[in-house]
């Protein structure tokens, strides 16, 4: 028991000595850790230090609209965005972030440069996707995505950037909008209504391979 006590004292002393390290902290409940430190120490583990995540399971944030990032972080924090992957990975991360930290995190990722994200999709599929994105399919009530996400898919304000996003993530989100209440109260519910699996796959392939 004495030994445990000694060890406790040693660890305790070390802890106090090294208690806060604001420049390289991974603490999520402390308002004095800046958003940019959290971005590189915590978010980078999944989203990449430059926001160009490697895994298609994790969305890219590079060049994403700051307003959009802020909105998403707040809806994760408030649990309005409740699709399973968001819940599993982002509810906890965002639970005690301050508005200021969220603003800084958004600024950090929106300033990063989106890298190309080539996939093995066929040129035909990509061309179909381009057609949907730019012109929609009027006789099937599919609206042109570019109307809101912008002609170069860069997004604006609350409309997210989609260019170079992982196709797998795009399809997953289109399904969330179409079939669930995981991301309520957005125009995407109506937009996705007429979309078929083939439409989703095509437009996602086009967006992932978006010409820079």
């Amino acid at each position: 028991m004495n030994k445990l006590l000694t060890l406790g004292i040693v660890v305790g002393t070390m802890s106090v000595a090294a208690c806060v390290n604001l420049d390289r902290s991974r603490t999520l409940g402390n308002p004095s850790v800046s958003g940019s430190v959290l971005a590189i120490q915590v978010c980078s583990n999944c989203h990449g230090v430059d926001g160009n995540s490697t895994s298609p399971a994790i969305p890219r944030l590079a060049g994403q609209q700051a307003t959009y990032i802020v909105n998403q972080m707040k809806t994760f924090r408030g649990h309005e965005r409740s699709d399973p992957a968001g819940q599993e990975s982002m509810w906890g991360i965002s639970r005690h972030l301050t508005d200021q930290q969220i603003t800084d995190l958004a600024a950090y990722f929106s300033k990063q440069k989106a890298q190309p994200n080539p996939s093995a999709d066929t040129p035909q599929l990509i061309a179909q996707g381009k057609e949907i994105f730019e012109n929609g399919i009027p006789d099937q009530n599919v609206i042109a995505c570019s109307a809101c996400h912008g002609p170069t898919a860069q997004g604006i304000e609350a409309f997210p950037r989609l260019a170079n996003q992982h196709a797998d993530y795009i399809v997953k989100q289109l399904n969330v909008f179409q079939n669930t209440q995981g991301r309520p109260g957005t125009p995407m519910e109506a937009v996705t209504h007429p979309l078929t699996g083939a439409h989703k796959a095509a437009v996602a392939a086009y967006l992932q391979n978006f010409p820079n």
Partner: peptide
């Protein structure tokens, strides 16, 4: 998991503890 507020699958591959995901390793 309580410390990060995340679900087990964030760190454990396919949820099969104790095998770690890339994030779990970091």
């Amino acid at each position: 998991a309580r410390q990060t507020g995340q679900n087990c699958v964030a760190c454990h591959a396919g949820g099969q503890f104790p095998e770690l995901t890339p994030y779990g390793r970091l």
